[in-house]
Nucleic acid binder design. Structure first.
Lengths: 215, 215
DNA sequence: CGATGTGAACGCGTTCACAGCG
DNA sequence: CGCTGTGAACGCGTTCACATCG
């Protein structure tokens, strides 16, 4: 979708699966396969019509409507997310902000009043909020999730490093910022190069470069 | 690793692959297979020793050392990341903060002075920074990435919604917050059901039931 | 016995290769 | 002729099932 938006901006009329793949960092076959799962959007010999395909992709992604979102946790991350312009651009409207800290309640971020957590159920029900962003401490996440679900929320964007237990019909998307850096440290970590004084214990192709270990 | 940390905190001595899998939201076979790729850490009939395995996993993830990190972009997200305590807890130390905005330069976040972007190469080289967090606007991301790489950075945590072009030896980890919400809207988007009034009895990922379309 | 470690079977997403169509 | 759409082939991660060993 981002690639299509860029092409639309540039006024490009049609695009081939090869060009789309290059933009999106994938393969042409993959682009065609995935799109073909939803319909037949292209023209053989020509490519895909940018504007029409973009509209189609938006609909597939559920972005052809507004979504009411609640933000729970007005800490540093929560505040940053509230002001993140791309959410609103994509149709996600944060209509309520909650925090458990009485010192924060009544305060404002970007002109929106922070409400006490105990009003969560009422407000979410009344406004028909379907998605909640959890930017709360790990120990509070499960309780907030339970209450949000009880209030009718069907999707959770969870920034707390815990595995939430929710009913099967509720979708959870975890974002673990620490893990993102850990993934890098794993990739950058120096491997033990071969040739060490390993008593000849390594025969056959080893998966990782480090010698097999026993505790 | 998070599961093991919780077990260590509780003073549990050994843990089975089944218990670990439950905690981590995966399967016992998967836990055993993955661990066995790195070594033979368990005891048959008993399970895995929590403390020793935790140490081993930390090393595998490259978390048995400190990592010097630079933060580029002192906007809302950048500031939130700087103060995010879990980075430091895991050994990631943000030793420099940069911003292109002269109004921000010289200011402080959490006691750390914001430096002008044009000092990026010098500072990163001098301090031996290996990882950079990119919390800059999309249009600036590629240039910052290029300069960070030129200054010796080998890992990038990129919050800008662009696909960075970097040399093959540099690792990039993309975090796209808008996409995380879009993923939810896609999952929550109402499907055209094929007549069957399925009252919510669903298991697992649902197939795409929308009729095939043509533009 | 009980739980690990692991070859084998399985399933599934990816890639290939080409028929089909503008 | 060019590029889509797609069945088939492929590769690979997951899961199974059990030999193995404390």
């Amino acid at each position: 979708m981002r690639a299509l938006e860029a092409l639309e901006e540039k006024g490009v009329a049609t695009v081939s699966s090869v060009e789309l793949a290059d933009q999106a960092g994938t393969t042409a076959a993959h682009v065609r396969k995935d799109l073909s799962a939803f319909g037949s959007f292209g023209t053989r010999g020509l490519g895909y019509p940018v504007v029409a395909l973009l509209r189609e992709v938006r609909e597939i992604l559920g972005l052809d409507r507004r979504w009411l979102v609640a933000l729970v946790g007005a800490g540093r991350i929560g505040s940053a997310l509230f002001a993140y312009p791309r959410f609103r651009e994509r149709g996600f409207e944060i209509v309520a902000v909650f925090d458990a800290d009485p010192a924060k309640v009544g305060g404002h971020i970007e002109g929106c009043e922070i409400q006490p957590s105990d009003q969560l159920e009422t407000v979410l029900r009344d406004r028909g909020v379907e998605i909640a962003i959890l930017a709360v401490p790990a120990h509070a996440a499960q309780e907030v999730a339970d209450r949000a679900v009880a209030a009718g929320v069907r999707g959770l964007l969870n920034f707390a490093p815990v595995r939430l237990k929710v009913p099967a019909e509720v979708f959870v998307n975890d974002v673990n910022l620490a893990m993102e850096l850990e993934s890098l440290s794993h990739a950058l970590r120096p491997r033990l190069s071969s040739g060490g004084a390993n008593g000849g214990a390594n025969a056959g192709p080893r998966p990782h470069r480090a010698p097999r270990r026993t505790l």
